[in-house]
């Protein structure tokens, strides 16, 4: 299990390959990457603020829960903070399990929790100014299925 909260860019393909090569006893690997949307060309940059210390603790707790609940062989979360340009990779999740259903479910579980329980806040910088991204009701609703 590995977590990295970092400002620097990373290569999701290389991370997925390394994760897959290192995993033992799995028959399925699922990876997901989240990118900065350009909002039809209106977005200049995205700034991501976080709460150092709590971010790591909260995500590690989510990952521990996912490992148990979905009988994962391994899990990886990388999440960036700081200033990102449209199209850049914000974060990725990788999960490995014996069969695909658990790996898919665990990736969705981690994504749902990262969205509304990991202390990150996104701000969109556009030509007309900057605005904090507001949390969506459906993100909160998404947690209820777990």
């Amino acid at each position: 299990m590995r977590l990295s909260v970092q400002e620097t860019a990373f290569d999701p393909g290389a991370e997925a390959n390394a994760f897959t090569a290192a995993v033992q006893g799995a028959g399925a690997v699922v990876t997901f990457a989240g990118l900065v949307r350009d909002n039809g060309g209106a977005l200049a940059a995205m700034e991501i603020e976080h709460y150092p210390g709590m971010t790591e603790k909260a995500i590690m707790a989510m990952m521990d829960q996912a490992m148990d609940r979905f009988r994962l062989a391994d899990a990886l979360v990388i999440h960036r903070h700081g200033r990102l340009a449209p199209g850049e990779v914000i974060m990725m999740v990788a999960t490995a399990s014996a069969h695909r259903a658990d790996a898919f479910a665990a990736a969705e579980f981690l994504m749902d929790y990262l969205k509304s329980r990991a202390p990150f806040w996104k701000k969109e910088i556009g030509a007309d100014g900057a605005a904090w991204v507001t949390a969506k009701d459906e993100d909160e609703t998404a947690l209820k299925r777990w």
Binding site: Y51, W121, K122, V133
Partner: peptide, 10 residues
């Protein structure tokens, strides 16, 4: 004690 708006990670 930390105060903040609802989180928007992922």
């Amino acid at each position: 004690v930390a105060f903040f708006p609802p989180m928007t990670g992922g």
